[in-house]
């Protein structure tokens, strides 16, 4: 496909993806409210919040690095989103997936948080470094089972290319990695709980401990940029999980449904748990999920040989 239309289609899908993230965010707020016995905010509340953030004024700035933090964060999210194919065999909705593989996607997932950490540290509030250290230690911990699970999938598919992994799962539901390698799936979905930062792993911005964490000093427009980045990253991650474990999607509708199903896995877990302490969270990920991940790698080797 020509580069220019490709950029156009990717930008369009990014726009739709970010908006879908906002919609899902509204649904989540509503669902959480219903679980808690509340009526909940209107579905379009994320859009109103976004508009309000844009129309408030910033009153403080801690240097340009501080300002760049949300930019890095959004770049990370957008990077993940554009590198993941959305619909199988549709070059318009494949993004730039043939130009990068899983490792690049994972790099972008890490990159956003690192950039945010750099910017947040500039704020100077003690909550920021505490939140950053919490977030980075938890991230390093959940990366272990996640990477093990990805190694297992790559072993089975023989490649780190997402398109190849998706192609290997075609031909029936039982061909999905969700069923063909349950160990890798379990490890990755537990790691997903940590990535999505719902309870019990919402230790970064824990409001009763270190309010807002790294983002303590961030304000309106910074926040709106972070909302965009977070939305792109969340949808990108869900699409990635859909491709890795649920056999990709054959149509846009299928993709939308699978994304919301994967998303609500962590939302429902988050509704019924308090949060861990940092070291408990790290210990959690390095214990059973890691063992399951190793089992997933061995299982993949066994099946292959």
């Amino acid at each position: 496909m020509e580069l220019l239309p490709k950029i156009g289609w990717t930008a369009l899908s990014l726009f739709v993806g970010i908006n879908y993230g906002f919609v899902i965010n509204g649904i989540i707020r509503k669902v959480m409210a219903r679980i808690q016995g509340r009526f909940g905010p209107p579905l379009w509340q994320p859009y109103i919040d976004m508009g309000k953030l844009l129309f408030q004024r910033n009153s403080i700035m801690h240097g340009y690095m501080h300002w760049l933090g949300p930019v890095f964060r959004s770049v990370g999210g957008i990077g993940v989103f554009v590198l993941v194919p959305i619909v199988i065999g549709d070059p318009r909705l494949a993004g730039f997936s043939e130009m990068g593989d899983l490792l690049l996607v994972m790099y972008f997932m890490f990159f956003g948080s690192l950039g945010m950490a750099l910017g947040a540290g500039e704020g100077g509030h003690p909550h920021s470094p505490i939140g950053v250290s919490r977030g980075l230690s938890q991230m390093t911990a959940f990366e272990v089972p996640f990477i093990l699970s990805i190694i297992a999938l790559a072993t089975a598919a023989g490649s780190f290319d997402i398109n190849a992994i998706v192609a290997g799962q075609q031909g029936g539901v039982l061909q999905w990695n969700f069923f063909s390698n349950p160990f890798a799936t379990a490890a990755a979905f537990i790691a997903l709980l940590g990535m999505n930062m719902y309870a019990p792993f919402n230790i970064v911005g824990a409001p009763t401990e270190i309010p807002v964490g790294p983002a303590t000093e961030y304000q309106n427009t910074y926040f709106s940029l972070m909302m965009i980045g977070r939305s792109a990253l969340a949808i990108g991650k869900m699409v990635l999980f859909m491709n890795l474990f649920l056999g990709g999607a054959h149509s846009v509708l299928e993709a939308l449904v699978k994304v919301i199903v994967i998303y609500f896995w962590s939302v429902f877990v988050g509704a019924v748990f308090p949060r861990f302490r940092t070291e408990q969270s790290v210990r959690f990920f390095l214990r059973w999920p890691t063992v399951i991940g190793v089992a997933g790698v061995l299982f993949a080797q066994l099946v292959r040989s």
Binding site: A33, G37, R38, P41, D49, V212, T216, Q219
Partner: peptide, 19 residues
Amino acid sequence: TSRFDMSRFGISGAPSPRQ
């Protein structure tokens, strides 16, 4: 909380004065 639920009107809490 559930009985009166101010989030119906788009009112929510902010832990930090910056937000």
